[in-house]
Design a protein around this nucleic acid. Structure first.
Lengths: 133, 133
DNA sequence: CTTGACCTTAAAGTTCACTTTAAGGTTATG
DNA sequence: CATAACCTTAAAGTGAACTTTAAGGTCAAG
């Protein structure tokens, strides 16, 4: 089986060496084997684990949540737990979409109202922001 | 005309005293008048200015952007500038909505696939995150 | 006239997810 | 065998938007 040191793993995974060490300190990556000169030696599946982390981050999971998911996997834990975490994430995302959509509606309407000409005094954009709510 | 010291302004605006001082250092709030004992004395329109800041933050503007908007107002500047800032913000928000919607679609589909029973091994949620992309 | 609730400043701490720096040890190449 | 490109650690820095702390001065009530 092929093994890599941290620079190679960094290149293959797209995660900076320092970030990999950071994930190790944060218990997202397991402590790898070491060479006689104390260099980290990673097995191939470390690439997949880092890509899991990258992808979960893109989905908006925090490192705390990702750690939970990884620990569940490592312990081959209960699928119900993973579902609970993912459900919470889905609700968070739906909530964010709702908030942003409300803002999008008001902001785009306001932008149509504003000619973009003349002085700030009476500018619809500023007035829209000034309204409470 | 009524004036307030910082605690009263904090109560009326809902912004913590320390945050008000922070906004002053950051040039979002003007330096107010002082009493003989060096206490800050705010005019009534300080409330509206703080509420403008709060609201703009809710719309996702950064303090830098809010400072720009406030400076435009203070200088009675060009409405085109305000429109440019708001347009950029609208694009940012639309982009966020798009990203989140894509995530929402995949995540909710994945959640339906996952029974929530059994061990982690083969869990559709984990597998969905593990896919690159 | 003392207690407590205000106010002042500067500076350090918070959270998140890293990045950068400092000060070295190791390995591959010419 | 020198030099460059790796690797090691601990600790400090980043940015955003504050919050907290430290060390005091002031004011109203009893």
């Amino acid at each position: 089986m092929k093994t890599f040191n941290i620079g190679e793993l960094s290149e293959k995974s797209g995660v900076a060496s320092h970030a990999i060490r950071f994930y190790e300190r944060e218990n997202l990556m397991p402590e790898p084997a070491r060479t006689h000169s104390n260099y980290r030696r990673y097995p191939e599946d470390a690439i997949a684990r880092l890509q899991f982390i990258i992808h979960a981050k893109q989905w908006g999971f925090t490192l705390d949540e990702i750690r939970e998911l990884l620990m569940l996997q490592d312990a081959n834990g209960d699928r119900a737990e993973a579902k609970r975490i993912a459900k919470k994430q889905l609700e968070k995302i739906r909530h964010q979409i709702q908030s942003l959509s409300r803002i999008e509606a008001v902001l785009s309407e306001t932008l149509e109202e504003c000619s973009g000409e003349g002085p700030m005094d009476g500018c619809p954009i500023v007035e829209a922001i000034a309204q409470k709510g």
